[in-house]
Design a protein around this nucleic acid. Structure first.
Lengths: 123, 123
DNA sequence: CTAGCTGTTATAGTATATGTATAACAAAGG
DNA sequence: CCTTTGTTATACATATACTATAACAGCTAG
C-alpha cells in the first residue's frame, strides 16, 4: 500500500489519503481484515502531522470503510453498502458534472463515450 | 431567471449561484446576449452581500460563461468550449464518483443504468 | 516491571476560505 | 445633477485545514 501526498493540490491532504485508500480497496490492493499503519508511523512516512492522518482514518470509519480498535490498530471492513442517501448523492454529483459538460458543448453521445471509457478503465 | 439560496448548504453561496446560472444556460432559460441583474440588485433580492454575487459573476466570467462590461452590466456569452484540460477534469470527476460507487457495491451495470437515467433527465 | 508505542484528547497557532458590513471612488445614463 | 453602476479597500467573524506540542492511559515486547 503506497500512499503519496500532493501538498499543492486543492484537495485537502486528509481527503487525498481517504481517496487513495478507497482506490486501493476497489482495486483489491487492500482487503477486508487488512491492518492499517499507525497514525504516527504514517504521518512520519508522509512528512505530515498525525492529526491529519487521524482525520483521514476517522472519515473512513465514518463512511464504513474501516473499524478503529483503539490502541489495537485499525482494520479494513467489508465496506459500506449503498442506500437511498448515497444513491441521491451519486446522482447529484453526476448531474452536476453532466450539466457542466453540456455547457461546454459536449453532447449526450460524447458524454456516453467518455463515461464508458472511464467505467471500463476502472473495471 | 429565478435564483434561490440555501443558506445551510455545504456548497458556498457564490457556487450555488454559479451552478444555477449554468443550469439556466443549459436548459435554455438563459441565452447568449442576455443581461444579468446588477450585483447590488441581485444581492438585495437574495438577501446576501454584493461581494458574494460579485464573486459568482467573476467565477462565471473566468470560466467563460459571461463577459462583464464594467458599469454597462454583464452579458451571457456563447459559453465555453471544451479543451484537454476540461476533459481531464471531467474524467477525473467521473473516476472519483465511479470508484466510490464501486466501493459501495455498485457494479458496472447498475452504474451504467444510473448514468443513463441522469443523462436522459438532463436531455 | 520497565520502556516504548499506541490512540485519544486538549490546546494553540497559522493560513485560507467564506460571508458580511461599510465606505469611497469614478463612470455611465437619465 | 443625481442615481446607479462596477470596482476597490478595509475590517470583522466564522469555519476549515494543517501543524505543533503535550499529556494521558492502555497495550506489548523486552
Amino acid at each position: 500500500m503506497l500512499l503519496s501526498i500532493a501538498p499543492d493540490s486543492d484537495t485537502p491532504i486528509y481527503l487525498q489519503l481517504r481517496h487513495q485508500i478507497v482506490d486501493a480497496l476497489v482495486s483489491g490492493e487492500l482487503r477486508e481484515g487488512d491492518q492499517l499503519p499507525s497514525v504516527r508511523q504514517l504521518a512520519v512516512e508522509l512528512g505530515i502531522n498525525l492529526h491529519t492522518v487521524n482525520k483521514a482514518y476517522k472519515v473512513l470509519e465514518d463512511e464504513g470503510y474501516l473499524r478503529i480498535y483503539g490502541r489495537r490498530g485499525a482494520r479494513i471492513t467489508s465496506g459500506p453498502t449503498y442506500n437511498d442517501d448515497y444513491l441521491q448523492q451519486l446522482a447529484d454529483g453526476l448531474e452536476r458534472l453532466f450539466t457542466d459538460a453540456r455547457s461546454h458543448g459536449i453532447d449526450a453521445g460524447q458524454l456516453r463515450q467518455i463515461v464508458d471509457e472511464t467505467i471500463n478503465k476502472g473495471a
